[in-house]
Structure formats: C-alpha cells, structure tokens
C-alpha cells in the first residue's frame, strides 16, 4: 500500500511537470488523441508517450516487466476499442478525470470517475464468472 501511495505521488509530480510545461492537465487518453490528430502539438505529446514506453522498457530490463492481462487477446481487442472510444466520448480516463479532474474538484470528473469504477466493477463481476481462468487476482 505504501508503494501504491508513493507511486501515486510520482504520478502527481508528473502531472505537475506536465502542467508547468504545457499549461494542460495530464490525461493520457487525451494525450494519445492529440498525438494522433493534432499536428501542432504532436511532438510534445509523442515525447510524453515516449517517456511512458521508455520506462516500461527500463522496467523490463531491470527485471520487473509489466504483467500480462489475464484475458484472451480477442477480449483485449474489444476492450481496447471500448477504452479508446469511451475515454474520448467521456472526455477523460483514469488520469484525466480520476487524478487531474478530482484534484481540481471538477464535478464532471467526479461523476465520470464514479461511473467508470461502477461500470468496471459490474463488468468484472460478470467477466469473472464467464472467464473462470481470468479470476486469478
């Protein structure tokens, strides 16, 4: 739990650096969207994403690679489309609404965060019964 809080603090620091550098809130889904579709900010958005990928690579090199999802690939593809579509429709993901929005006491972000946690919980409750193997947590 302590490593969770410390890791979270690093994320808060990252959001602060991002804000000081760009004047924007650090929402990862919005950053990916900007990298894909907004030519004028593409470089800085890609730099942020490169930082994420580089750390993942470094973690794998020092021996703590990211864990794999317990779901089959076909399910992950469906999930990926839903996450991409839903975050852009709802204007944010765990970082944009969950961290940045809540830090700024945005009502929209609080509602969005409660909604995606509730939807995720219902989904996991159903999915763990459908994919018995996926319940290993």
């Amino acid at each position: 739990m302590l490593t969770g809080f410390f890791g979270g603090a690093l994320i808060g620091l990252a959001a602060t650096v991002y804000w000081l550098a760009t004047g924007r809130t650090a929402g990862v889904s919005g950053i990916v969207d900007g990298a894909l579709r907004e030519r004028e900010v593409r470089g800085q958005r890609l730099a942020f994403l490169a930082g994420l990928v580089a750390v993942g690579l470094l973690a794998a090199v020092v021996g703590s690679p990211a864990g794999a999802s317990p779901y089959p690939t076909a399910v992950l593809v469906v999930a990926g489309v839903l996450v991409g579509f839903g975050t852009r429709l709802g204007g944010g993901c765990t970082s944009g609404h969950g961290v940045c929005g809540i830090s700024r006491f945005s009502i929209a972000s609080i509602v969005a965060t409660l909604t995606f946690i509730a939807a995720g919980a219902v989904t996991v409750a159903i999915a763990t019964r459908l994919f018995a193997a996926a319940a290993g947590s």
Partner: peptide, 16 residues
Amino acid sequence: GAAVFGVGWGLSGYCP
C-alpha cells in the same frame, strides 16, 4: 463515455 470506458477497463485491466 465513462460507462463504455469502464466496461473496457474491466474487460482488460488496462487503462491508457
């Protein structure tokens, strides 16, 4: 949008 994201989040364990 948040609900659709939540379903995908639960079906993968991944957010962006």
